[in-house]
Nucleic acid binder design. Structure first.
Lengths: 238, 238, 238, 238
DNA sequence: AATGAATGAGCATTCATTCAT
DNA sequence: AATGAATGAATGCTCATTCAT
């Protein structure tokens, strides 16, 4: 950035960087009863089941996501489920990969609006919580995945980590990041991923009951960015 | 680093700071069949059930922790379980608080060996993974707690956060931490907590199957400390 | 009695008034395996479960009526039970209402064959025991209901009492019943209901083990009718 | 009675025949902790268990009468139970015989205050409900006995029946009872026993919740006596 | 004799999956 | 391909009874 005295997050003109954020689109499922061709109908039922599963897991957790609940919400018979998915575990395993990709796409889009690495990280950070707000089920799906869809979670983690490492590698190349070897970027990536997960506490703690995500307070973003930029000892701040 | 004498983590004589770490004691349950006196016997059975539960959750997750499995491993009849715990959920709810306290005690002990804030954080960080190695079940118990023992998890999080915030507050007072308002320390606390969770990947990924924790590589600790100290931009490193 | 020709119960040609009784139909459940169509099949399984439950309660009491026993006797899997009834208590609660209605219908039909109030009572009395013979489980179902299906029993009692009171009210109106206020008919109703229950001892005491009801001896009916008609002091008999 | 036109129960001077009733003594158990000799102590514990069982059955029914509940209420350890009774069924089987004898003794005492058969029956009738009021557990113990203590119940029934038959036989001998053969008295006995059971509805229905018996209304007694004396057709009343 | 913890058979209920229609 | 009832293994929990102290 131009001057160390103007931090990304507390610059006057950066007050509401969230205005820059694209609007995350809510998932909308068309009613399969109006479908025309057989293929179309089948496709829509599949989508209805998938969305129903996401909602049910969001509301009752993976454990409470029974086939009965999922099919009821999708408006199909229990047996129909097995025409579209191998097993209960099968659909649970697909939840995070598909939704995770959506999340990554959106967050990446947000991030690309910024010009410097730190600005991009801030936008990605904000984008993540904006996505959470638009997809209130995602947080629980992500949170419980280690227990209930371990492989999917592992894959998701690696996907995000790799994206982060590519992102950080560019920072290393441009000199924005200093003092790290390439290998060490993985550590940074994990720290930032962990941060997003734990700072979710600020997004949900205010939320009443529904898990309807709240916006994350601006000062949290500010503090996070400060930490990422300067560390705790804050050398170079003055 | 400019000077080895200032570097906490990569100073030659600091190569193995883990040598300083106290040895975490492994839980060992005496066979209750040799107990004398009813009280002693009862106490041992209780402990056997608790340990068995921790092991079973570590191996099969909270979900797979059936009473059958727990009592079989403890070597008692199913009904005996209910003489010591109210319900299945009861014991699951006690797992994290009890083990979490053990962990905090041990990590605190480690941390106190250091003199500077950053040294203490490094020792605490290493201590955390040393504890994980001695208690291979703890990681899964902690990880899955949000899904299966949400209240216990929330309490644990708050306990750790509060400890962290007291720790950081001292750094603020001594001037070791700069550029943060007191309120913002909560963000730092969560980032560091999230880091420990996610960097656990380096400790478990090598572990074959048993979840037998591995040591966390030194370079990971180094990178983490660097990040905490200077942030990504590494100002003041040169 | 003044004249044998007027006596309902001990008139020579009335010796076998039971000949007048309609034949109570035994419950017969068709094998559901031969059913055509899903609806029919489902209906038959439901009936099989209901009948099995009645038989099991008749044989082992409400307390011994486990789902295992009921489904085994019905020839279906345990889980099937819960496709047809909410819970174990649900089916137990339905036993008396359904069978009680059958009983009341049959007894009412019997009673209506008579012309005078006392004749009708005798026919109803005989009909009750004929029903018991055809439905050997009913007695125990009725007897244990206060303990195990209290609401159903209360409802049954009230149903029978109300029927009785309407019946007796007509007697009051025609002058066949003398010396009672309308309100007092409830007492008479309960006495007659209690009588049927306790006089069941004559019907079952001979029955070996199965509770296979026996016919109630004629002299018991005679004595009962005498008591109802004239009371103990038998005024007007001479 | 002085005059047949003045029935027992509604004669002015008979308004409160219950005043004549002896006062039923409530069961009182001495605290066994104050016992002196070993025998005395044992005897008191036995009594405490018995009383506790009666209370528990009265409150929770035979089914809910667990050893835990009984011993807790008696203030002894679970194991102690088996030093005094063979099994759970054993104590349940003793409940009705012992309490039934108490009831019979008291009711007999009441009955003997009267001079005519019908007066005695009325006094016994009233005495029965006075006993119920003093021993609120007895009704449930009696009611559920057919299901849970069938042998004890059968014995009780026979005991009461035999008493009744002796009572009625005297009426036959004195000429107070007319028109019945000796054998037929059994029918009358059962009718009167059934009446007491069913007319209990008038005693409990008003009782709110505790099963604390209420007095049976006078008009019920009146109607009952009328029915027993004259039957339904009431010949000889005018 | 009293204690109270250990025992384990037994129960109602759930739910992923199958399969005849 | 959709249906929805049937299946039966698995689970948490209760409680009468036993027995070492």
């Amino acid at each position: 950035m131009a001057s160390p005295t103007r931090s990304t997050s507390d610059a006057p003109r950066g007050r509401k960087p969230s205005r820059k954020l694209p609007v995350p689109e809510k998932t909308k499922v068309k009613d399969w009863r109006n479908a025309e061709g057989r293929n179309e109908r089948s496709r829509l039922i599949h989508a209805a089941l998938f969305t129903a599963a996401a909602e049910v897991v969001g509301a009752h957790g993976y454990e409470g996501a029974s086939i009965t609940l999922i099919t009821q919400r999708a408006g199909v018979a229990q047996g129909t489920f097995y025409n579209h998915f191998e097993s209960r575990q099968d659909i649970l395993d697909q939840l995070l990969p598909r939704l995770g990709k959506e999340m990554l796409d959106y967050v990446g889009e947000c991030s690309r609006q910024g010009s410097t690495l730190l600005e991009r990280e801030e936008l990605g950070f904000r984008g993540f919580y904006a996505f959470l707000k638009a997809h209130p089920h995602f947080f629980r799906i992500l949170n419980e995945a280690p227990s209930f869809a371990p492989k999917a979670h592992q894959a998701h983690i690696e996907l995000v980590r790799d994206g982060y490492m590519r992102f950080l590698k560019r920072g290393l190349d441009t000199g924005e990041i200093k003092g790290f070897e390439e290998k060490e970027l993985e550590v940074a990536a994990f720290v930032m991923m962990g941060a997003r997960l734990y700072l979710g506490h600020f997004a949900t703690q205010a939320g009443k009951n529904d898990g309807d995500g709240q916006d994350i307070p601006d000062w949290v973003t500010t503090a996070y960015c400060k930490l990422i930029r300067h560390g705790l000892t804050g050398a170079g701040q003055g």
